[in-house]
């Protein structure tokens, strides 16, 4: 056990900020905690099994008292990337960007350019939805088989991050049982879009990731 602790100690120095805030919360200095900081990304089969659901969460660890004033930034584009031919380059994108209290959605569509810089695919507006206010029932719109939501939700991520920090710091040798969810009681700003699988490749395996991009 002592050897393990030593190994972990070396690991902590080498990795420096192992699990700083897990999933992707506050993952890097340039974005930490800001309005482009992606906290989490999910992709799963919908209630309608012919559909896939994409979730992007931003701005982690919002307390109930700060959630009401949290907003999406109009200069930040959230882009779901979909690779359908296994080269890890996006063949399709779904873009979400807010304007005047609404979230606008474009795609799925082949992007004009792949990579780090994006233009909004204004030729492919597929939906828009009022950004749900904190404390209100979720506003949902549908169009062409797609469903759209944007607004504050409970952070679905769960982990005993505090105890992990203690382990890494050398103050503990393992997790507690039961553990304590560091993310309990906190909110995120969520963008949820559900899309027919037929629009994103139909069958097989896709590779997907989410990006935030600033104008």
């Amino acid at each position: 056990m002592k050897k393990l602790k030593t190994v972990l100690g070396i690991g902590a120095i080498a990795v420096a900020s192992f699990f700083i805030i897990a999933a992707d919360h506050i993952d890097a200095p340039a974005v930490a905690g800001g309005n482009s900081d992606i906290t989490d990304f999910y992709a799963f089969q919908g209630q309608n099994e012919d559909n896939l659901v994409f979730v992007a969460n931003l701005q982690g660890l919002l307390s109930p008292s700060t959630t009401g004033s949290a907003t999406f930034n109009e200069n930040v584009l959230v882009e779901f990337n979909i690779d359908t031919d296994q080269d890890n380059i996006e063949d399709l994108v779904i873009q979400a960007v807010p304007r005047n209290g609404k979230m606008y959605f474009f795609g799925p569509i082949a992007p004009a350019q792949t990579g780090l810089n994006s233009m909004i695919q204004t030729n492919a507006l597929t939906g828009e939805v009022d950004i749900t206010a904190y404390g209100s029932a979720p506003v949902i719109t549908t169009n062409g088989g797609m469903s759209f939501f944007a607004g504050p939700r409970d952070d679905p991520f769960f982990m005993d991050f505090a105890q992990f920090s203690e382990i890494i710091a050398g103050n503990a040798t393992g997790f507690n049982s039961p553990g304590a969810d560091t993310f309990a009681g906190t909110n995120v700003m969520s963008i949820v879009v559900e899309v027919p699988k037929s629009m994103i490749g139909g069958s097989g395996t896709i590779n997907t990731w989410v990006e935030s991009k600033r104008k």
Partner: peptide
């Protein structure tokens, strides 16, 4: 306008 990448996650 052009939007330039800041964060990503898979």
């Amino acid at each position: 306008g052009t939007y330039v990448q800041e964060d990503q996650m898979g």
